[in-house]
């Protein structure tokens, strides 16, 4: 297990290899497809974003409501393909890390290679376990999106695996190929 600090340094991003199991500690932002769409609209209009995208890591998550006394509810990753249409634009504008589940499109992987971005897989359906790693959660923008709003989270030792690295090596392809039988 490698301990990695967020926001990711350019060097960390370029050193991580597909298959590395990591524990992530530091600041990330949450966004799902609705928020991605709005970010892209702001970027197209040249308007400022509600958070600093350069070097940031986005977690694709829509948590359950927080129970009293807890910073956040259950908070596992959602399927990343819904962000595929938007991710290349965000990556070109400095996004350095993404956390989600499931394979990405060739266009996303090309953008990751071109700009140095890493895609981490968190365990889908491990929402309670991951929530325990989230120390705080604060609304940043677009409260109207409810669970899909952008939040800033401080996380500690969030378990993930490098699914696609900066060189485009993809564990969603190499993993199953290595374990296929017959």
């Amino acid at each position: 297990m490698k301990k990695i600090t967020l926001p990711l340094s350019d060097q960390d991003a370029r050193t991580l290899q597909a298959g590395d199991e990591v524990l992530l500690t530091g600041t990330l932002y949450t966004a799902r497809d609705a928020a991605h769409k709005r970010i892209c609209e702001l970027l197209a209009a040249g308007s400022p974003l509600p958070f600093e995208l350069e070097g940031a890591t986005l977690y694709f998550v829509g948590p359950t409501p927080a129970q009293p006394g807890r910073p956040v509810g259950s908070a596992g990753p959602t399927t990343s393909t819904r962000m595929d249409a938007f991710s290349p634009t965000l990556i070109a504008h400095g996004l350095r890390g993404m956390i989600g589940k499931g394979d990405r499109s060739p266009a996303v992987v090309e953008a990751m290679k071109a700009h140095g971005c890493v895609y981490f897989a968190a365990t889908g359906g491990a929402g309670a376990l991951i929530a325990r790693c989230i120390k705080s959660s604060e609304l940043v923008a677009w409260e109207d999106l409810g669970t899909e709003a952008i939040r800033r989270m401080e996380v500690e030792d969030l378990p993930a695996v490098v699914a696609i690295d900066c060189e485009g090596k993809n564990l969603y392809h190499t993993g199953p190929a290595a374990w296929a039988q017959g």
């Binding site: 998550v61 829509g62 948590p63 359950t64 129970q67 807890r70 509810g73 259950s74 908070a75 596992g76 959602t78 889908g124 359906g125 491990a126 929402g127 309670a128 929530a131």
Partner: peptide, 9 residues
Amino acid sequence: ERVPMCQDT
């Protein structure tokens, strides 16, 4: 802890 096992309930 009576927390949803997955956020997608």
